[in-house]
Design a binder for these strands. Sequence first.
DNA 1: GACAACCTCCTGGTCGGACCAGTGTCATCG
DNA 2: CGATGACACTGGTCCGACCAGGAGGTTGTC
Lengths: 231, 231
Amino acid sequence: MTTPVNRRSVADRIAHRLRDAIVGGRLRPGDELPSERELAEKYAVNRSSVREALHRLETWGLVHIRHGGATRVAEFLEASLELLPHLVAVGGRADPSILADVHEIRGMMLGWCAEKAATMADPASISRLEELVRQMAEPRDPKELQALDYAFFQELVAITGNRPLALFGKVLREVYFGAREQYLPIYQRDVFDLRPHRKTVEAIRARDAKAASEAMREHASAALKVLEDRP
Amino acid sequence: MTTPVNRRSVADRIAHRLRDAIVGGRLRPGDELPSERELAEKYAVNRSSVREALHRLETWGLVHIRHGGATRVAEFLEASLELLPHLVAVGGRADPSILADVHEIRGMMLGWCAEKAATMADPASISRLEELVRQMAEPRDPKELQALDYAFFQELVAITGNRPLALFGKVLREVYFGAREQYLPIYQRDVFDLRPHRKTVEAIRARDAKAASEAMREHASAALKVLEDRP
DNA sequence: GACAACCTCCTGGTCGGACCAGTGTCATCG
DNA sequence: CGATGACACTGGTCCGACCAGGAGGTTGTC
């Protein structure tokens, strides 16, 4: 189910229904949406709520609203990054390659951040990384491991001090936690290998940028393999 | 001026005014915004329009709206990527490091894409890269060189076939062209060095992933140095 | 018949005013 | 002193009216 919570606002509910219709292909790019008044009647809500929902879709890059004209489904190529989590959450099953793509991006960032972290990390950050690895050694379940792995990633990004990169990381986070089940195979007890993380932290402590980067790339490519083997 | 067009909707105008207030620092993270009713009175518009504006700010990640409680300014770390171009354009002068940060991200992507491209590129793509380098050898002005350099970047990303990464690239593009003047020092005739690009294309043609990556990283770090030397 | 101006009906945009639904505060009561 | 509940906020939803831009048919002219 793509609607975990029912306490969402009316506008949110409608926005997500329409989103699913668009991302799921029932509404195709170029199609006209019903008018706000029609949608309001159809969903038995007020037009204001429909308007709010439509504006949300617009900021997601899913529709174009034109004063005087009909509201149309946008081309996906124009989609904004905001949409990515939704694309993965809804369309992930239909097109699993996008999951791997996102994971690949995370791998790229991991490698790069580890390299920088080896020269920039302060003792406190390194301790936090070590603490995370310690917790990852005894995970309660794959979900917790996944969360810790992301925290590790986030800490590495934070060490680089690159704030825009942290924003990129946040998008990845939304993708991950929007489609977390699909990434779970990576985090099964008999599959997940913690050694690269250990190596990375050791390398960072030893200021060995190359080794740190290598270790993280190793982790990423192993995880990617798991993802590709279990479609 | 940050308001080029006056034909924007009322909600848009208000959203942009509030955005500027937040990004500009007049409203700090944690601060309470006035209530919707107060804002409506202050700006002499209807509460619906204010609500629409506030929801836009929320999807940008700039505020948190809580039913029953006050609307507060969010932490910048939570801001959406959509906002990044504006952050750079407005905050770039006050905090030039963010320009370098963005450039660094581009460098990371360049290195990674070049590496992948060396194993994946088809002849047509390689030809396009060569053509771009040829054009870059005789630029009419720095601006054209900048545009070609971005096109080169985009082509590399396209070769990897990673569509989400292309979306990330699109965000970088918006940042670049929103603050293009600030990046121009890199593209001065006596500064810009085309050799890394040549090397990259050669390495890709030779299927030498490591060399391709190295060359692009060389270009990125050289450009970064220019950026840091001319604040 | 070709073409332009116009009219009309559709669309989304704004309005204001009512009421519902969560939150925080503060006086009151045990 | 602490729990409780009334109250005065906050945002959320609704209604119904009107404004304003766009598209297509109609009419009038040439």
